[in-house]
Amino acid sequence: MADIAQAAGVSVATVSKVVNGRGDVAPRTRARVQELLHQHRYLAPVFRHTEAIESPTIEVQFQGGLKSYVAEALEGIVDSAAESGASVVISKASRAPHWARDLVSAGRHAVIAVTSVYTAAHLNELARAGLPLVVLDPLHLPDSRVNSVGATNFAGGLAATQHLLFLGHRRVAYLGGPTMAVCNQARMHGYRAAMEAEGAQVPDAYVQPGEFTYETGLLGAAALLDLPEPPTAIFAGNDEIALGVIETARARGLRIPEDLSVVGFDDTNLAQMTSPPLTTVRQPLREMGGAALRTALRLANGEKVESHHIELATELVVRASTAPPREETSARR
């Protein structure tokens, strides 16, 4: 404020009056100060109370469609907010000019991002606005300035693959999400670690990146099943991919799990609705949402948290989509 006052040739008190909307400032002076405030992207300081905010409001942003994965995480956030007496506003991630300042003006006290990507510029914008950020299941390695909540993706990938190996499969493929997504890398490395420990070969064609979508499952499974030596089991990077795999197998006349075993990841509601019900790695999405909400509330009240990244445990849930391989697989039909 002092820098802006000096640039405008007025007192700090005059700048304060403009910032606070006082009327006793000459129009030309007000215009000059407002222009400088805009140029310097000035934000009024956000005061942190020593006592808990009575009715905190948290902005929850997500990217893409409202898929089952996102919906379950949001449910955990909303439930935890209700228990804590906080309010939640859900929106799609916005990058409009001064978006962080607009959130402060709207009375938000923190931001939770679900699968949203934040660059250094976004983080700087939030820091200038004084808004804490918590990222739920970050797609990229978390910045040390960012608090985040995730799951034990490596352990989940390891458990899923070990389950298939225990059943007797040796030709196990991994059909995953974006190559650079941290969660996908961890699941793939868990898969590779299990395969290596068992001495099972991983041909290059057995590891297929894609998106965390049903379409990736459809197309990726077709490519895998067209190989000269197709896999007898496919570990999918999430439940939606697994559903696509099952549909491709069905269209080719293959039976799940007799001809092809399939494992997913997340354990969304979709996993129990498939035919047969899907063996998958449970990612505690509702619990992760609750942890993100509680972390956001602590940061909004100026409290320190013990760690900038929290990981909740995954768990293998065995259902009917996996079985021992047949001696002569029919996966090339």
Results as ranks from 00 to 15, higher is better:
residue 199 G to K: 03
residue 226 D to M: 08
residue 226 D to K: 09
residue 120 A to E: 14
residue 164 L to C: 05
residue 168 G to E: 07
residue 207 V to H: 02
residue 180 M to N: 15
residue 219 L to H: 13
residue 238 N to D: 11
residue 249 A to C: 05
residue 124 N to D: 15
residue 176 G to E: 08
residue 158 L to S: 06
residue 218 L to A: 12
residue 234 I to E: 07
residue 185 Q to T: 12
residue 208 Q to T: 12
residue 171 R to I: 12
residue 120 A to W: 01
residue 184 N to S: 15
residue 155 A to I: 00
residue 223 A to Y: 04
residue 181 A to H: 14
residue 211 E to T: 07
residue 144 S to T: 13
residue 155 A to L: 01
residue 164 L to D: 03
residue 132 P to S: 07
residue 228 P to S: 12
residue 153 N to M: 00
residue 170 R to M: 04
residue 130 G to D: 13
residue 120 A to K: 06
residue 209 P to L: 00
residue 169 H to F: 10
residue 185 Q to D: 11
residue 140 H to N: 13
residue 179 T to I: 09
residue 204 D to Y: 04
residue 217 G to L: 11
residue 180 M to G: 12
residue 193 A to V: 01
residue 131 L to H: 10
residue 238 N to M: 04
residue 135 V to Y: 00
residue 226 D to L: 09
residue 190 G to I: 01
residue 247 E to W: 00
residue 211 E to S: 13
residue 170 R to Q: 15
residue 207 V to F: 01
residue 198 E to C: 12
residue 121 A to F: 11
residue 236 A to M: 08
residue 216 T to K: 07
residue 155 A to E: 15
residue 227 L to I: 12
residue 148 S to H: 03
residue 188 M to S: 07
residue 230 P to F: 12
residue 143 D to Y: 09
residue 220 G to I: 07
residue 245 V to I: 13
residue 131 L to P: 13
residue 123 L to P: 06
residue 141 L to R: 10
residue 144 S to W: 10
residue 183 C to N: 13
residue 215 E to D: 14
residue 131 L to I: 15
residue 249 A to P: 07
residue 175 L to M: 02
residue 186 A to W: 07
residue 188 M to H: 14
residue 160 A to W: 06
residue 123 L to E: 12
residue 122 H to P: 05
residue 178 P to H: 09
residue 137 D to V: 08
residue 125 E to D: 15
residue 142 P to R: 02
residue 188 M to Q: 15
residue 172 V to E: 03
residue 154 F to C: 03
residue 161 T to N: 04
residue 138 P to M: 08
residue 132 P to C: 11
residue 234 I to C: 09
residue 243 L to Y: 02
residue 177 G to M: 04
residue 223 A to V: 06
residue 167 L to D: 03
residue 192 R to V: 08
residue 172 V to L: 08
residue 174 Y to Q: 02
residue 222 A to F: 08
residue 242 A to I: 07
residue 226 D to R: 11
residue 232 T to D: 02
residue 230 P to R: 05
residue 172 V to S: 04
residue 220 G to L: 14
residue 152 T to R: 15
residue 205 A to V: 03
residue 146 V to D: 04
residue 141 L to K: 02
residue 198 E to N: 09
residue 164 L to F: 05
residue 173 A to S: 07
residue 120 A to Q: 13
residue 250 R to I: 06
residue 209 P to W: 00
residue 191 Y to I: 05
residue 178 P to T: 11
residue 157 G to F: 03
residue 232 T to M: 10
residue 240 E to S: 14
residue 134 V to F: 08
residue 147 N to K: 00
residue 140 H to E: 13
residue 136 L to H: 09
residue 139 L to G: 07
residue 126 L to K: 01
residue 201 Q to M: 14
residue 124 N to C: 02
residue 151 A to D: 11
residue 241 I to M: 14
residue 221 A to N: 03
residue 174 Y to V: 00
residue 182 V to K: 08
residue 227 L to F: 10
residue 141 L to I: 09
residue 128 R to P: 00
residue 233 A to C: 06
residue 198 E to L: 06
residue 132 P to E: 10
residue 198 E to F: 09
residue 224 L to M: 12
